[in-house]
Nucleic acid binder design. Structure first.
Lengths: 230, 230
DNA sequence: GATAGTTTCATACATATGTTTGAAATGCAA
DNA sequence: TTGCATTTCAAACATATGTATGAAACTATC
């Protein structure tokens, strides 16, 4: 009967500390102090530090992915098996943005932890993220159904840009606030989702020319690359 | 006469190793071995490991920033003091994308190093990146001149999304190739720049309603924003 | 060629940090 | 209780890694 008490305490303490101070600045000794457990408990319950981090990350990732797929499924049912491209993009970026920028700041170490995981890039998390491709393929498939005949390449670029806007906004949240001097309201999650979705849909549905060849590329040689060494 | 030879050798070796194996996996001892210099040379010439990394990063950053401003200036001169929004965005994302995705020219180590710096997030680099806000303000100012009357908030979001697409594409280059099974050509830098610029401009110039209030956010929770006209 | 400043070198230092260990404590079943 | 399995604990372990040191080698100016 694994009382599980120590285990949970470690997970909670670790997530909190990592969320607050980042992976680079938190040692196992910090974690066990915060959790009031013995140092050896981490290796006993998780095997290694990396496996602890991995467990934290997969737990939260699974949550997000499940929400994504739920929204996608709901959208497809609503549309009789074929979701609109807009709803698909919303299902793709909505859960992540809500999860990381959500207003429940106070208690939600989970959100802050996921932001950290997005900013810092530590080996165990990188390994897990690499498996995410399979998950994204489901969205690519849905997009293909929503936009039959559209070139696959365009579809992947749209997917890429949608994730780009969502993740970058999360990653660079503080910088955007500073740059815009508070004009960009990072707490208005619904508004942000609308923005990202709108631009993504535009990128995907714009000019059919784009599906044949890349958008109007000027023959001009770009800029001046005065490349002088320092 | 500071022969500078050792110093340069360290810089070159460090950039190569960091580019290949990342910051987390490369020690000073690896670097001095690669450079065929003594271990103490790093601290003698740079003061500390972090200052070495910082110097590597600022060198490349300065290059990129100078290219950006050069392009911006050229665009403004071309337009008689007022550059088009498209040219501004091109000046913003072009140099970075060319620098990081460019074809492997003379030792692509610089490019690969900058990709690493974008993926991993190590303290000395983070510190430098934080100063980048001032640089971005110059682009915000140019955009304001190009789109007078437009709400500042929209402008910052557009800037944010443009950087998002550029940086995310760089960061997740490998994943995008894998996801698209090679359909997305990450070597076609000019094409990528065109894509990013096109979407950015769309995001910025779309529906004037967006300049007054956030992009047509329906009262309905998951309402659809049909915004197809570019 | 002597002297002063600069650079290189081998080596030592310090110590942070994940991991292991073996014993003690605890819990559970018979 | 007894005995076995699980868990906790203090301490040790290992060692990777950035940094400091002091002497030697080198360079240049006089």
């Amino acid at each position: 009967m694994p009382s599980d008490q120590t285990r949970s305490a470690i997970l909670a303490a670790a997530e909190r500390l990592y969320a607050d101070r980042g992976f680079g600045d938190v040692t196992l000794r910090d974690i066990v102090a915060e959790a009031n457990v013995n140092l050896a408990a981490v290796n006993y319950h998780f095997g290694s530090k990396d496996e602890l981090i991995a467990e934290l990350f997969v737990t939260r990732s699974i949550q997000t992915n499940r929400e994504r797929l739920n929204e996608l499924k709901a959208a497809e049912e609503k549309g009789g098996g074929r979701a609109s491209i807009e709803d698909i993009m919303r299902a793709l970026v909505g859960p992540t943005l809500r999860g990381c920028l959500g207003p429940d700041r106070e208690g939600s170490t989970a959100a802050r932890f996921m932001i950290r995981a997005s900013i810092e890039s530590v080996p165990p998390i990188r390994r897990i993220k690499n498996r995410e491709v399979d998950h994204l393929r489901k969205f690519a498939a849905a997009m293909r159904r929503a936009m039959p005949g559209r070139d696959d390449t365009e579809l992947y670029w749209g997917l890429n840009f949608a994730l780009a806007m969502a993740h970058h906004t999360i990653r660079e949240k503080e910088r955007l606030i500073r740059l815009s001097e508070g004009k960009c309201d990072l707490d208005d999650v619904a508004g942000i989702i609308d923005r990202v979705v709108a631009v993504s849909v535009m990128a995907l549905t714009t000019g059919d020319a784009a599906s044949k060849s890349p958008p109007a590329r000027p023959a001009v040689v770009h800029g001046r690359l005065t490349r002088q060494d320092l």
